[in-house]
């Protein structure tokens, strides 16, 4: 594979070195590796550049295994013994680091490439609009479907499987072996899908794309930014500047289960999501707005309860305002 050929140029290294490299990965995956072992790892790396090479190779294998592992588990699920207290996911930043998503070469290319580029056309569209709190699933054709979050408006051209996203949030699922089964347009940016699951949020000013399977290429002519499964980008529509972050599939798709999952997310982004789901306005006093939030919000609870909880997490109080809510110190 052309995309992989540069990686495995060191097949001649002794097995012992490969084993040591794997051992360092295993230790890191185990319970937290103490600093004394990190110092030992440093010394091991310093012995010869071959150690770094072997380690990077082992990482590639580790990432591939992370992709293949779940499939393997599924095939043998019945046989598996399931009574040994598997720890539940735990949303501390530390654990998140250890669960950073895999980007094996196989994984990166596996399912999807999504492409943005300028240019659009305007055929006949039907408009779909959801109310606040309403979640609607729409089949576009036999292999493409979307789930719209509340307060979302989009125009759908079924014949050409093209969606113009005007505002809000939706997840697109494409189960087609043929690329280009779906086109999503956001102003003059186009996303073309190559068979994947991805979530798009658009505001007046920003666009967020989170990919849960496969990979996304943004602006292939110039910036050539690749976003892989487990990553999310927030892009300003006015100048296309962007920030990227890591995100879990659970967090991306949680709104479909009436939940919002936040992992170390800035208050402003959290508030925006809550506003969209409840159709309300929330202002946060400056003293509280520079924090980050990790946690789960159930949208099944009523609005006042959710906003009071959020206020408490921020260390403030919620007050009813003329149009919505205020969270103050």
């Amino acid at each position: 594979m052309a995309t992989e050929s540069h990686m495995n140029k060191n097949n001649a290294l002794p097995d012992r070195i490969h084993e040591e490299a794997v051992r360092w990965i295993l230790r890191q995956r185990d319970a937290d590796m103490p600093d004394s072992e990190w110092a030992a790892f440093t010394e091991w790396l310093e012995v010869t550049p071959d150690h770094m090479t072997a380690y990077n190779d082992a990482l590639e294998a580790d990432e591939d295994l992370g992709v293949i592992g779940p499939a393997l588990e599924q095939m043998h699920h019945d046989a598996a013994d399931d009574d040994d207290g598997i720890p539940d996911n735990d949303n501390t930043p530390f654990n998140l680091m250890s669960r950073w998503p895999a980007f094996g070469a196989v994984a990166a290319m596996l399912l999807a490439v999504v492409i943005f580029w300028p240019g659009t056309q305007s055929p006949k569209y039907a408009t779909f609009q959801t109310e606040y709190g309403e979640i609607r699933e729409v089949a576009i054709n036999s292999s493409v479907s979307m789930v719209m979050n509340g307060n979302t408006e989009l125009a759908l051209d079924r014949e050409n499987a093209t969606v113009q996203m005007l505002r809000g949030e939706a997840t697109y699922r494409v189960e087609s072996p043929k690329p280009g089964a779906l086109r999503v347009e956001i102003d003059d940016l186009t996303i073309v899908d190559y068979g994947t699951v991805f979530n798009v949020v658009r505001d007046k000013t920003m666009l967020r794309v989170a990919v849960t399977e496969g990979a996304v290429m943004i602006d292939p002519e110039q910036e050539k930014i690749l976003v892989s499964a487990g990553e999310q980008i927030d892009m300003q529509l006015k100048d296309l500047s962007l920030t990227r972050s890591t995100v879990s599939e659970d967090a991306v798709l949680a709104w479909q289960d009436q939940q919002l999952v936040f992992e170390d997310r800035p208050v402003k982004a959290v508030i925006r999501d809550i506003e969209r789901n409840f159709g309300t306005k929330i202002s946060v006093s400056n003293g509280l707005s520079n924090q980050k939030i990790t946690g789960v919000i159930s949208l099944a609870n009523d609005e006042a309860m959710v906003i009071n909880d959020v206020a408490a997490v921020l260390g403030g109080k919620a007050q009813k305002a003329e149009t919505g809510w205020r969270i103050v110190d």
Binding site: D30, G66, L72, D84, I86, P87
Partner: peptide, 12 residues
């Protein structure tokens, strides 16, 4: 392997 790599159970 599955316990370790997927279920994140430690070697110990």
């Amino acid at each position: 392997f599955i316990d370790f790599r997927i279920n994140q159970i430690t070697q110990k």
